[in-house]
């Protein structure tokens, strides 16, 4: 199971990076989602695992680490905000440079 989980995390991470390196700006944006999902899953693995009970008061049995969960919760929200902002940048690029090809965005050069 660990093997499969790690494989899923790594694959999503690698696919996200691959997408990030595309010229098509929309594809880069989707890559960002994959990447943040993979990172969030990875953050879960940094916590302790003490059982299958959710981290609630008087849970049945030992509970898993609530701290990474709280961190991931925050991370999800913030990456969602950032993602929306990136999308608005895509729109602006399309408006100003009339392209969805990141290589054609001039102004970074020189």
């Amino acid at each position: 199971m660990n093997f499969l989980t790690a494989l899923a995390i790594a694959t999503m991470f690698a696919l996200g990076l691959f997408q990030l390196m595309r010229r098509n700006t929309i594809r880069s944006a989707t890559g960002l989602v994959l990447l943040s999902n993979a990172v969030n899953m990875f953050l879960f693995t940094t916590g302790a695992y003490d059982g299958v009970a959710a981290a609630y008061y008087q849970a049945q049995g030992p509970v898993s680490d609530p701290l990474p969960q709280a961190l991931v919760l925050t991370a999800i929200v913030i990456s969602a905000g950032g993602f929306a902002f990136v999308l608005s940048l895509l729109y602006i690029i399309a408006e100003r440079y009339k392209t969805s090809n990141s290589d054609e965005v001039e102004g970074l050069r020189n």
Partner: peptide, 11 residues
């Protein structure tokens, strides 16, 4: 990280 989860204590 996953393989050592059981050994760790809660953060």
């Amino acid at each position: 990280s996953l393989n050592t989860r059981d050994e760790r204590t809660n953060l």
